[in-house]
Amino acid sequence: MILLTGATGRIGREVVRRFPSDLAVRILARDPGRVTGASGRAEIVQGDYSDPQSLTRALDGVRATFLVTSRIGDDDARFVRAAVAVGVRHVVKLSAAAVVDPGANDLITRWQRANEDLLRASGMEWTLLRPRSFMSNALAWADSVRAQHVVRAQYGSSPNACVDPRDVADVAVRALTEEGHAGRAYTLTGPEPITAAQQTAQLAELLGRPLRFEELGADQARAALGKRYPHDLVEALLAGAERQRAGAKARMDATVPALLGRPAGCFRVWARDHLGSFSAR
C-alpha cells in the first residue's frame, strides 16, 4: 500500500492522476470530497496532520508514502512520528530547491531544511524532491489577465528555471513505485530559465491578444502579498524574489530528463494546456 498526501494541491493532484491503477493506493485528505482524478481502486480517507489518530489509521499497512506539507510548523514531525511507529519503509518528501542555496535563509527555506533533517534522522528510507518554482504560480496572474490584460510581478527581467508541476508529479510516481531512489535528493527544474516578462509575452501570443507587464516595487509587492499571507511568509517570499533578481534561480538541472527519459516541459506548453484559466469567461 502506498499513501498519498497533499492530494488537492498543485503537485499532489497530479500525482493522484498519474498513479498506476493496478497498485494499491490510499489518499489522505482533510476534505475527501475535493479529491479528483483518483482511480476507482483508490481508497480515500479523511485525516489531518494535527490529528495523530487519523495519521495512524491512514498509515496502517503502508510501505511508502508521498509527503506534502504546506503549513509552517510541526506537521512533518507529526507525520514522521506516526510513520515510524507503524513501520513505513520509504518516504518521498516534497521539499524545495532553495534548501541547497547558501544564500537562502528565509523562514520557508529554514523550515524545509529542518524537515529534510528530520526525515534523514528518522531511520526510514527517504527521497527528497527539490523543485524550483512551479510554472503554475503564474495562475496568480489569471484574474488581472482576464479583467485588465495585465501581469503584475516583481523583477520582470529576472530569470527562473521554473518547473512544470506535472514533471514533479511524474518524478514522484517513479520514486514511489520503482527501486533505486532511496537516499537520493533530486533538484527539479524546467528546460530553460524564463522571466515574468517573457511569460507574459508567451501568454499574450497564446491568447491572441496583447498583455501588458507591470513591474511591482518592493512596497507594492509587500502590500499585494499581505492580502493573502501573514507577515513572516510575505517577508520570506520577498527574500526569494531578491535572490531570483540576483540570479539564484536561473540554474537548470538535468534531473527531470534523466529520470523521465524525455525533455522537461516548457512554460509555453504548460500555459497552452491551462489557457482556459487566463481566458475571459
Rank of each mutant, 00 (worst) to 15 (best):
V173Y: 05
A250T: 04
F79P: 04
R272A: 14
D22K: 09
G190T: 09
A83P: 01
Q148I: 00
G180A: 05
I11R: 05
D101P: 00
V62I: 15
V15Y: 07
R41N: 12
V99C: 08
L259Q: 12
L216K: 01
R268S: 11
D273T: 13
R41V: 04
T69Y: 09
G240K: 12
V86F: 03
R174K: 15
P193N: 09
G156N: 05
R81W: 01
R41K: 12
S133K: 08
A58E: 06
H149P: 00
E178L: 11
A138G: 09
R272T: 04
R228C: 03
L203G: 04
A82T: 03
S133Q: 15
R212Y: 02
R174S: 05
G183C: 09
L176Y: 06
D22L: 04
T69M: 07
I108N: 10
G156S: 09
F79W: 12
A147I: 03
A58T: 02
F134I: 01
P131S: 09
E43D: 09
V80K: 02
A182Y: 06
T177C: 08
H231L: 15
G226I: 08
L119R: 12
T109I: 10
I2E: 01
A204F: 09
D117F: 07
G61T: 02
D106V: 01
